[in-house]
Computed example of a mutant assay.
Amino acid sequence: MRRPDGHEIPEPYAVFVQDYLTTLRSGTEFTTPQDVADAVWRAVTEPDAPMKTPPARMRSDGFAKRVHP
């Protein structure tokens, strides 16, 4: 199996790689520019903000709770 960038994927891994790429392409979760802006704002305005901030739609504490289409 050859990747679009020209690299060869060894045959024993071809099915795994193909399934994995199909899963990635069909994902419904995504990060929006607003998610990034919210995380940056929180990081610079809240002294106790965590190093990793999940998107607002996935948070349980109500911070900037939004629903994206």
Rank of each mutant, 00 (worst) to 15 (best):
M58L: 15
G6W: 07
Q18L: 12
P47W: 00
G62Q: 06
K65G: 05
P10A: 13
T23F: 11
K65I: 00
E29A: 09
S60F: 02
D61S: 08
A39G: 08
V67A: 08
G62P: 02
T32L: 01
A64D: 06
Y20I: 06
G62I: 02
T28D: 12
D38W: 00
M1P: 11
A14K: 09
T53D: 06
P47Q: 07
A49W: 01
I9Y: 05
M58C: 04
E11R: 12
M58Q: 12
V40R: 09
T22L: 10
K52D: 04
I9D: 02
M1K: 05
K65A: 11
F30P: 00
S26G: 11
R59Q: 07
P55W: 04
T22P: 02
L21T: 07
P12V: 08
P10L: 09
R42M: 09
T31F: 03
L24Q: 14
R59K: 05
K65R: 13
M1W: 04
E29Y: 05
R59G: 04
Q34F: 10
A56R: 06
V67Y: 00
R57G: 00
I9V: 15
A37T: 06
G27K: 05
D35E: 01
D5K: 03
M51P: 03
A56C: 13
Q34I: 14
H7Y: 03
K52S: 09
T32F: 04
V36H: 08
Y20D: 10
S60N: 08
V40K: 05
P4I: 04
D38P: 03
V36W: 10
P69R: 08
V67Q: 09
V17S: 04
T45G: 03
T32I: 01
Y20H: 13
D38Q: 12
R2F: 15
A37C: 10
Q34K: 12
Q34S: 04
D48P: 00
I9H: 03
M1G: 14
M58D: 10
L21G: 00
P33G: 10
A43R: 14
T22W: 10
V15I: 12
T31G: 00
